[in-house]
Write a protein that binds this DNA or RNA. Structure first.
Lengths: 142, 142
DNA sequence: GCAAAGTAGTTGTATAATACACTTAAATGT
DNA sequence: ACATTTAAGTGTATTATACAACTACTTTGC
């Protein structure tokens, strides 16, 4: 396999993360911050979950997710139900407000992508989406 | 243009930034941290530059870059030359050690990409590199 | 069936990356 | 020549994160 291709990908990835941080920090990129957006999206698509499952999904420390979910609960976007089978555990579920915020943010973020990619062909956008998805699901047991 | 495609790209980008943060934080991703790596790379490829130019390139606040370059200077990876035409300004240049670290980190990071993408076809990797480059250069005057 | 080990979650503390507001010194414009 | 602008640096705050210690519960091994 071509080493130059991978050197180029490596550089573009370093730039991408800088660029995405900059775009998403400017806070015009949706009402919810990134962690909140991902957590609510995960709960929406995979059903209610505890801190541990969420932390594993996003490869974050449990303590980090614990604080993030607390913040979401504080804001009324999720609520916490004790796990009937395990007295230590909880499930977080979306509130109506949480679902509303999720959809609103998703719409705002998609609109931003629309603007960014307006000069791209349909084929480029489709391919980009596919390759990003493939990359995100390419795991390495580290 | 397809809205679903963009919704999907939007989600994958949110996931990607989380995933990249996780990969690059584990610190097995090269000796230099991301900001140092990008700054040294920029100075290498575009020649010596001042804080302002670097901040613009990476869309960071000048204060942020000022601290980052100070840290690089501290570690002996760059040195600072006064701009002969402007008594307020400086140019940062790579030291030999800085260049060495840059190349070493680039090699380490590329190797990591090699591992991650080892199941991909040559065509997929080429296309991914191209689309990432295109995305990174797709600007929006925000 | 109980003690030891393990586990889910929380909280304390530390660090890194960032922005914004302010300061300083030099350059530029009128 | 004085006011305005600009390059860089510094003070301070915020956010996202990890690791370590702790609490309360569960599971396991004898």
């Amino acid at each position: 396999m071509s080493h130059e291709t991978n050197t180029s990908i490596e550089l573009e990835i370093a730039l991408l993360i800088r660029r995405l941080t900059s775009i998403t920090t400017s806070r015009k990129f949706g009402t919810l911050d990134r962690s909140a957006y991902l957590l609510l999206g995960q709960i929406e698509s995979h059903g209610s979950a505890g801190v541990k499952a969420l932390a594993e999904e996003f490869r974050l420390d449990i303590s980090t997710v614990s604080r993030q979910t607390s913040a979401l609960e504080q804001k009324g976007y999720v609520y916490k139900m004790p796990d009937p089978e395990d007295g230590r555990a909880y499930f977080y579920q979306l509130t109506e407000e949480g679902r509303r915020m999720l959809l609103e943010t998703r719409a705002q973020r998609t609109e931003r992508i629309d603007e960014l990619l307006k000069g791209w062909t349909e084929d480029e956008r489709t391919r980009f989406g596919e390759l990003l998805a493939k990359f995100n699901r390419t795991y390495l047991d580290d």
